[in-house]
């Protein structure tokens, strides 16, 4: 027989030695019963976390200044979402890159969000029973873009910072209908009406799409503050944590770890770089049987001698 090449990390001499009894059905049954007992016991002892979701109503009542400031940023187009870029809107200079390629910009705007219209003006348009809001909305919509910008600039010089008798204290300024619009949206949010208005923006009746309320919520500091209190912020390894002391997605440890270290932690393309790294590492795991060096580690580390110690011990005798 002609000798053939042999790679110990690829080839194996198939087993022709002894066999021992093996009851696969019994093994499977015992495993299921064992896991069932473990799961029922852990569930009984520890349960599972369930912190209530945050609503715009809760936010606007608990932190009206933060809400009103965020609402103004949405109207002025300076909020995080308004300046996000794809897939929500077209903002020059945005879009993370891997080298010269921006995948998000290649995909373009597929979930269009106009922060001023979607988060402020359209919801206020549903408040037809509030004359001051209706009048302010009409004033805003009939003004020129230059006039609107002047009002926004003037309002920004004196952003409300205090509440008196449950009403925001607005310094008199030449901001046109802006104080009324922001005050109207805050009042609307405090009543709970804004939660439903944003949820139904994209559909006529049914909706399971929370894109708009979640984007609005994430633009303020209230939501992030609550998350930080629950040790869920990014610099607290938040992606793999769970509320309370429950184990979260521990299997995301490497993904979360990358965000904590340079160059990822300091890069403006951190998300794209972390994902590219994780995709590369995942590909290495999947294709390890074909990667010289990586597939030789088990043979060189020799941990297999511990795993098959009975086999190697019996070979000696």
């Amino acid at each position: 027989m002609k000798p053939t090449s042999w790679n110990p990390d690829v080839d194996v001499a198939e087993w022709t030695g002894t066999q021992r009894p093996y009851d696969i059905i019994k093994e499977g049954t015992i495993a299921v019963v064992f896991v069932l007992i473990v799961v029922l016991t852990l569930s009984f002892l520890f349960g599972s976390p369930d912190d209530k979701p945050v609503t715009l109503k809760q936010w606007s009542n608990a932190a009206p200044i933060d809400f009103a400031t965020t609402a103004f940023q949405e109207l002025a187009g300076t909020s995080g979402v308004a300046q996000y870029g794809a897939p929500y809107n077209n903002v020059p200079g945005t879009g993370q890159k891997i080298g010269p390629v921006s995948l998000v910009n290649l995909m373009g705007v597929t979930i269009p969000i106009n922060a001023a219209a979607d988060f402020v003006l359209r919801p206020l348009g549903t408040q037809t029973s509030v004359p001051t809001v209706t009048a302010s909305l009409a004033t805003w919509q009939h003004a020129s873009a230059t006039q609107q910008q002047t009002w926004l600039t003037n309002y920004a010089k004196h952003l409300p910072t205090a509440i008196r008798d449950s009403v925001m204290v607005v310094t008199p300024n030449d901001a046109g209908p802006v104080p009324s619009l922001i005050g109207g949206l805050t009042t609307m949010a405090q009543s709970g009406a804004l939660d439903n208005a944003l949820l139904s923006n994209s559909t006529s009746y049914f909706s399971t799409n929370y894109t708009e309320p979640l984007l609005f919520l994430s633009d303020g500091t209230y939501f992030a503050g609550l998350a930080s209190d629950k040790h869920l912020a990014g610099d607290q390894w938040g992606m793999m944590n769970e509320t309370g002391s429950f184990p979260g997605q521990a299997w995301l440890w490497l993904y979360t770890f990358l965000y904590q270290v340079s160059p990822y932690s300091t890069s403006s393309n951190a998300d794209a770089l972390v994902w590219a790294t994780m995709m590369l590492l995942s590909a290495l795991v999947v294709f390890v049987p074909f990667i010289p060096g990586l597939r030789s580690i088990p043979r060189r580390v020799k941990l297999y001698r511990l795993i098959w110690r009975q086999h190697y011990r019996s070979e000696k005798h």
């Binding site: 794809a86 897939p87 993370q96 995948l103 998000v104 290649l106 995909m107 373009g108 597929t110 979930i111 399971t208 799409n209 929370y210 894109t211 979640l214 984007l215 393309n269 998300d271 794209a272 994902w275």
Partner: peptide, 14 residues
């Protein structure tokens, strides 16, 4: 979103 997948896989859409 940074991967481009966010344009079709919207994690904000319950």
């Amino acid at each position: 979103n940074a991967t481009g997948a966010g344009s079709v896989f919207n994690v904000l859409n319950l």
